[in-house]
Design a protein around this nucleic acid. Structure first.
Lengths: 255, 255
DNA sequence: AAGTGGTCTAGACCACTAA
DNA sequence: TAGTGGTCTAGACCACTTC
C-alpha cells in the first residue's frame, strides 16, 4: 500500500474559505475510493483506526470521524473489539433496509423474506425512460427481468427489473437467480448497492398484472418505482414493483 | 439553574458492564429532560457548549457528542457562529420532513404546501382502535378532525386526525386552524412532534371519500396511516390520509 | 473583537472479542 | 493477553456570525 498524501490546509490556503474541506472529509474520500476500487471487498476487515491514522498521517480521531460517516451510510460495519468491516448484503439487510413491506398482523422476521419466481430475462436497447432512469448512453443495452414474489406461497409482488447490461455481463448464465439479488450484485458483479430512492403510487391492476397476482383487474395495487445506487453513486438498477397490500403495508419512518 | 450531578462511572461500578451508559448519553438525557420540561422552548438558543460543559462538569467534547445526536434527531439545530437552537416546526420542515408527496413533474417547493379545508371537529370517547393507536387510558376523550387538502385548488388528500383531548384542551377555540398543525402543537399546546411512523396501502376509494376528492368510487388511493410522536416519546397524533396519486407520488429514501 | 460551533490533535483509559 | 473499537479529556486553532 503506497503512502497517501492528505494535507491539512494552512490558513493561507483557506482564507476566504473558498472550498474548505475538512480533513476527515478527505480521509473519507480516500477510503471510499479504495472501496470503489475493491482494495477491500464486502466482508473484509479494514485496517484498524490506528493503522489508518498512521498511514494517512492524521490523528485517530480524524479517521474515526470519517469511519463514523461511512457507518451511518451503511457502507461499513463496526464491531467493538473485532474491527471495521465492509458491509455485506445479508438477507437481514435485504429484509430491513430494502424490503419495506410488513405484515399487518405480527412482526416482520426471516419468514417474511419473499420467494421469487423468474418469469423472463431478456436484453435489448434501452428505451428513453430506461436511459433516463439509469443514466445510460445512447444505444446502450439493458437486461429486463420479470419476476413474481410470494410469501408463504401467497402472491404478493409482480415486478420488473432493468439493469445496464455492461455492468452485469453474464447475468443470463447464472441459474438459478437468488431472491436477494443485491448479494449477487456484490459478489459476482462488484456492484454494491448502498441506497435507493422509491416513489410510491396507488394504481389499478392491469389485466396482465392482475393475472400474475391472482386478483381482479382494477384491484388497487401499491406501485413502487425504485432506483438503486451503487457505491460509486451510479444508478444501477431500476425496478417497478406492483404489490398487493390487502394484508401487508409499506413502512416509512419520518425523522 | 441548579448544578446537576453527572457522574463518570468508576471501573468498579462498571465491572461486568451491566447497564453501562456513556457520559454523553447521560448528558443527552439531561438536555432532553430540560427540553421536555420547557426550560428551553422551540426557537430558543441553548447555552453554548462551553457553558453546558462547565455546568454539567464534563468536557466540551462530551457535550458536543450529546448535541450531535440531538441534531441528528431534528430536536435541535446548530448554526456555526451563532449557537444551538431548539428546532421549530417551520413550513419548510413540514414540507420536507412530514409531507412526502411530491409532484411527478417538477420539483417540490413552497408552492407544494397544501391548503386545508376543515370539515368537522368533534370530540368523543376513544374507540378501541384509537386507544391502541394513541396509548390512551380507558374512557379517555379524543378530538376527531376531518379535513380536505388541496394543491392549487386541486383536491389531493382527504384525512382524519385523532388527538388526545387532554393534551389539546381548547383546540375547538382556535380559528382558523392552520394547515401546518404541528406548529400549533408546538406553540399552543407544548407538544413538539419529533418523528412519525407511516404505514402505506393502496385501497379503493369508498363513496364518501370519493366525493370529497372528486373522483369515482373505487379509484385507487394511497392510504397513509400515521402515528406522530412528541419529544417525550408519547404518541400524540393518529392520522389517516387518503391521497390521489395521479399526478403525485410518495417519496421514500432507503438508506 | 468577542463569542459561537467545527476541526484536529495527543494521550489515557474502558468495553469487548478472540485466541 | 493483545488488539480492536468506544469514550473522555484538555487544549489549540479555524470558520463563521454579530457587534
Amino acid at each position: 500500500m503506497s503512502k497517501v498524501e492528505i494535507g491539512r490546509q494552512t490558513p493561507e490556503q483557506n482564507t476566504r474559505s473558498l472550498g474548505f474541506r475538512p480533513l476527515y472529509a478527505q480521509v473519507k474520500h480516500q477510503l471510499l475510493e479504495r472501496l470503489i476500487n475493491k482494495i477491500w471487498m464486502p466482508g473484509d476487515a479494514l485496517p484498524s483506526e490506528q493503522h489508518l491514522a498512521v498511514e494517512l498521517g492524521v490523528s485517530q480521531g480524524t479517521v474515526r470521524k470519517a469511519l463514523d460517516e461511512l457507518t451511518d451510510e451503511n457502507i461499513v460495519v463496526r464491531r467493538q473489539g473485532r474491527g471495521t468491516f465492509v458491509a455485506e448484503h445479508t438477507q437481514e439487510r435485504a429484509l430491513f433496509q430494502y424490503f419495506m413491506l410488513s405484515p399487518d398482523q405480527g412482526k416482520k422476521d426471516d419468514n417474511h423474506f419473499p420467494q421469487s419466481q423468474l418469469l423472463s430475462l431478456d436484453s435489448g436497447s434501452a428505451t428513453h425512460r430506461e436511459r433516463a432512469a439509469l443514466d445510460l448512453a445512447a444505444n446502450e443495452q439493458v437486461w429486463r427481468m420479470e419476476r413474481n414474489r410470494t410469501l408463504q406461497s401467497a402472491p404478493l409482488i409482480a415486478e420488473k427489473i432493468v439493469l445496464p447490461q455492461l455492468l452485469f455481463d453474464g447475468l443470463d448464465k447464472i441459474k438459478p437467480l437468488p431472491s436477494n439479488i443485491y448479494a449477487l450484485f456484490d459478489q459476482i458483479f462488484g456492484q454494491s448497492i448502498v441506497r435507493a430512492e422509491e416513489k410510491l403510487k396507488a394504481v389499478a391492476a392491469e389485466e396482465g398484472t392482475a393475472k400474475r397476482l391472482g386478483c381482479a383487474t382494477g384491484t388497487p395495487l401499491l406501485r413502487i418505482d425504485r432506483i438503486a445506487y451503487a457505491l460509486s453513486g451510479r444508478p444501477v438498477e431500476w425496478r417497478i414493483s406492483y404489490c398487493l397490500t390487502d394484508n401487508f403495508h409499506y413502512v416509512s419512518n419520518l425523522k
